[in-house]
Design a protein around this nucleic acid. Structure first.
Length: 427
RNA sequence: UCCAGCGUAGCUCAAUGGUGGAGCAUCCGGCUGUUAACCGGAGGGUUGUAGGUUCGAGUCCUACCGCUGGAGCCA
């Protein structure tokens, strides 16, 4: 029996297993707030209804002690949540001594050291339930559209994305790296199945010490055969609308706990504004940003751009030097890559990066040379351009950044159960 | 790696270079509907570490360690 089901049991006797969240007492009546992971329940102890042992225990129970409580469910306006339990019996399972996270405020350093316990708090609970819902919605979106889940490996043989820092792993004496992206493996999967996606953790050994970077984060990456850049942008737009719709329908309570301005999410409707890199530069210059053609956007520029629109904005046709070697060039302008980024509004920045892939063997070989990449390690990838090459596009959605935006929490560390940050791998 | 700020009770924070305090948590007591309940009482300190200046350092100086924010970096 879980607290979330209690509305169906008014007038009935139930037993709940959970943890002591808080207590209040007033002489002959005591209130114990019980938490069981599905909700919070006010249990009411009157001296006349319970044994003296249970009555004393209700007063003595320390925060987060595990317990079993039995009683009658009652609807009562005075109870938080509208329902309470008139207790008949209380059993202690294990007494918690000096639980570190008290009902008052704590600093971020202390909370991060106690992340394993911090997960029990209301706010973390709300964020991680939304994360769970977002991931489920991602899976549903693609499954319902006939995509096949084809997972990419975590160990990868070579640095496939140039200068980016990778985590090196000793693989029985051979150097391997933790994956930065399932992208390259998605392409053969798309050739095999037409519409595919992968979803898993990715790793970046960047020494980035900012609120929008994790060294380990989860990425959802669809890849579609015979889809061009415009098609990938439309797919990304549909996906985001679907995710927002799902969270608004299924996780409204959690959004309220987080004090999220719901109207900001309700704005997220098609069509999203789409601007070229050149148009983005114009906006940035109007807002006083000094940026040269060919520069990639930093955190500052992303913030300015994302605050210029009331819904996510798609930015496309980037200078080639901003994008990876496998991005297809614009046939009308060799200096541009057919890439697209989606920036979330309210200053949350990039949540999607993707585009159309280079499908011409000679062009790709030339690019590999220019980027000074190990060609031999990429021969398998080049095979896709030798055996029935095809136009194809895809993108990667960062789960944590998406959850941060939906919840409007400033730092990614709260959007993943156990964040891995620069020099922070405990607990 | 660089820049800035901060390290004081279990936690969050005070304390003009002159006897280190409060709230919460803990323990004891009170209160018959509490809403981060409230009221009374008690215990709790090598002020991050090591040096230095000074009659006197939590406070000023130096180094180191740790944390936080930012920059660079970054599909």
């Amino acid at each position: 029996m879980f607290i979330e089901e209690l509305a169906n049991y008014v007038g009935k006797d139930v037993t709940i297993h959970g943890w002591a969240h808080n207590k209040r007492s007033s002489g002959k009546i005591r209130f114990l707030i019980v938490r069981d992971g599905t909700g919070f329940l006010q249990t009411v102890f009157s001296e006349k209804d319970v044994s003296s042992e249970a009555f004393a225990l209700a007063d003595r129970l320390s925060q987060e002690s595990s317990l079993e409580v039995t009683g009658t469910v009652r609807q009562d306006k005075r109870a938080p949540g509208g329902y309470e339990l008139i207790a008949k019996d209380l059993k202690l399972i294990q007494a918690a001594n000096d639980y570190p996270i008290t009902p008052k405020e704590h600093g971020i350093e202390f909370l991060m050291e106690h992340r394993h316990l911090w997960l029990r708090s209301r706010r973390q609970h709300a964020i991680l339930r939304i994360r769970s819902e977002v991931i489920k919605a991602c899976r549903d979106f693609f499954d319902d559209r006939g995509f096949v889940l084809v997972d990419a490996p975590i160990f990868t043989p070579a640095a496939c994305e140039g200068t980016t820092t990778l985590f090196e792993v000793d693989y029985f004496g051979q150097k391997t790296y933790l994956t930065q992206s399932g992208q390259l493996y998605n392409e053969p999967a798309a050739a095999a199945f037409g519409k595919v996606y992968c979803f898993g953790p990715t790793f970046r050994a960047e020494k980035s010490k900012t609120r929008r970077h994790l060294t380990e984060f989860w990425m959802l990456e669809p890849e579609v055969a015979f889809l061009d850049l415009a098609g990938a942008m439309a797919l990304a737009e549909d996906l985001i609308c679907y995710l927002i719709d799902r969270v608004l329908n299924e996780r409204i309570e959690e959004l309220k706990i987080l004090d999220r301005d719901i109207t900001k999410l309700e704005n997220v409707k098609k069509p999203f504004p789409g601007i070229s890199y050149d148009e983005a530069l114009t906006i940035l210059k109007e807002k006083g940003k000094q940026i040269e053609w060919g520069d990639d956007f930093g955190g500052d520029e992303e913030t300015v751009l994302s605050q210029s629109f009331d819904r996510p904005v798609l930015i496309h046709h980037f200078p080639t030097q901003c994008k990876a070697f496998y991005m297809k060039r614009d046939p009308k302008n060799e200096k541009l890559a057919l890439g697209v980024d989606m920036l979330a509004p309210e200053g949350h920045g990039e949540i999607i990066g993707g585009g159309q892939r280079e499908d011409d063997l000679a062009a790709l070989e030339k690019r590999i040379e220019e980027y000074k990449l190990p060609k031999q390690a990429l021969e398998w990838y080049l095979d896709l351009r030798r055996y029935g090459s095809f136009i194809h596009s895809g993108f990667g959605l960062g789960i944590e950044r998406t959850v941060a935006w939906i919840c409007h929490v400033p730092h990614l560390r709260e959007t993943i159960p156990f964040p891995r940050l620069l020099e922070k791998v405990y607990p």
